[in-house]
């Protein structure tokens, strides 16, 4: 089981804020590393609004993308994780274990919003990606402590 070290996220200044710079693309780019995104990826505002949100248009590898900014709900953040630097208490690098069973991840950057892009279509509430956000309210309902009043309401006919 891997572990994620979120301690860096607590200190606002210690990690980069990538808000408005994260893009969810409808394709799989088999590459992991830095790229000149701002030189080549040029989103433009278009006049179409969806649910009061201005949409954008961009091109990537010849395809037309249509996107919309999405804010993460309050109480949630997006994190960019990277391999934790395996330093022991003396500041020395530990020998990498042959089987990376206990992978350690740490927060390298955070973001509070992202741009969600569709190929050709405008983003929609019905897209799987947007629908995955339903989990937030489900999770909240599931984990909310039950109050005495709620129990009373349920025993009185389940209304409310």
């Amino acid at each position: 089981m891997g572990t994620i070290d979120l301690r860096a996220a607590a200190n606002e200044n210690s990690i980069a804020d990538l808000s408005s710079q994260v893009h969810q693309l409808p394709c799989c780019i088999r590459f992991d590393g830095p790229a000149q995104v701002s030189h080549y990826f040029k989103p433009k505002s278009i006049e179409v609004e969806i649910d009061g949100v201005k949409t954008e248009e961009a091109h990537f590898r010849g395809r037309k993308l249509q996107g919309a900014p999405i804010s993460l709900p309050s109480g949630y953040s997006g994190f960019v994780l990277g391999q934790a630097s395996n330093l022991n208490a003396n500041g020395k690098r530990k020998a990498p274990s042959p089987t990376e069973e206990n992978q350690c991840w740490e927060v390298k950057a955070k973001f509070d919003n992202l741009t969600y892009w569709n190929h050709d279509n405008l983003p929609s509430k019905d897209d799987t990606f947007m629908r995955s956000f339903h989990l937030f309210s489900i999770a909240e309902a599931l984990h909310k402590p039950v109050k005495v009043e709620d129990l009373v309401a349920v025993s009185n006919g389940g209304k409310g």
């Binding site: 409808p26 394709c27 088999r30 590459f31 590898r61 190929h119 050709d120």
Partner: peptide
Amino acid sequence: TCTAHLKGEVEVSWES
């Protein structure tokens, strides 16, 4: 011409 040039570059695959 473009696709030929991009063979061997980073592969990008699309749902469509």
